[in-house]
């Protein structure tokens, strides 16, 4: 590994960064967790969910897309940034139909885990939009419960860039933007249970469902039962 080319400062801690790294990549290497939902290891950065928003050089930027630059001063876990993230996550809960008590992703869900990390236990400040959205169970091995979709687009990038298929894509604009499948329903696409886009790690919520395995992981053994989201990154922090 080459020597660090420069340093940046996150919440007063100086860390090493290399040319071409984003703020988030440098922070991950240094064991500093910056919350994120649409960004996922192995997929290209998109910067759309804004949960990774940090103040860099006084400007609000998405840490998953903003390149690290020499001497950059970043605010990450300040009260202001934490509140902004909590508001964003809360609005995601209000915008979709997220019924954690009956969702098979509960305990493994990044949205739920992010809410817990940010101290959001009961979304209550905004009106629930309660949209009417379909459940597509047409495929023999896969179901899509779009009530739970947060339009992060991870499935779109996984399908296009890793599976080279294009099963998923965005339709609509603004608040009407949705993830759709490339066909009348999922059964009429070339989606397969072996696709990376369908793997449990890609969809952060309970939208993409691998059929007939729900609730097989007991409570206590689910991904976020024992640890907060992001702790796996913070484990190798130096200080």
């Amino acid at each position: 590994m080459s020597e660090p080319a420069f340093h940046i400062t996150i919440d007063g801690v100086q860390i090493a960064a290399r040319p071409g790294q984003t703020i988030m990549e440098a922070a991950d290497e240094a064991g500093i967790y910056i919350p994120r939902l649409c960004d996922h290891e192995g997929l290209r950065h998109q910067g759309s969910c804004r949960v990774c928003t940090v103040k860099a050089g006084g400007r609000s930027v998405s840490a998953c897309t903003q390149p690290a630059a020499p001497g950059l001063v970043v605010e990450n876990e300040t009260p202001h940034m934490v509140k902004l993230r909590r508001d964003l996550v809360e609005m995601l809960f209000h915008e979709g139909n997220h019924l954690c008590p009956i969702c098979e992703a509960s305990g493994n869900c990044e949205l739920q885990a992010m809410a817990y990390r940010l101290g959001l236990t009961a979304p209550s400040r905004f009106p629930f939009l309660q949209p009417t959205r379909p459940l597509d169970a047409s495929h023999p091995d896969i179901a899509l419960d779009t009530n739970r979709c947060i339009t992060c687009g991870r499935c779109i990038r996984a399908s296009q860039d890793v599976d080279h298929k294009g099963v998923f894509g965005y339709v609509g604009r603004g608040i009407h933007r949705r993830v759709a499948v490339n066909g009348p329903d999922l059964a009429h696409t070339d989606a397969a249970i072996t696709d990376h886009a369908i793997s449990a790690e890609v969809c952060p919520v309970g939208c993409i469902i691998r059929k007939r395995v729900g609730f097989r992981i007991p409570i206590g053994e689910r991904e976020f039962d024992a640890a907060l989201i992001g702790e796996e990154i913070e484990e190798h922090r130096d200080d």
């Binding site: 009956i102 469902i209 007939r212």
Partner: peptide, 14 residues
């Protein structure tokens, strides 16, 4: 109606 079969034991206990 419309929900997936493996969800049912969890939903109806509510």
């Amino acid at each position: 109606r419309g929900r997936l079969l493996w969800e049912v034991p969890v939903i109806v206990q509510r």
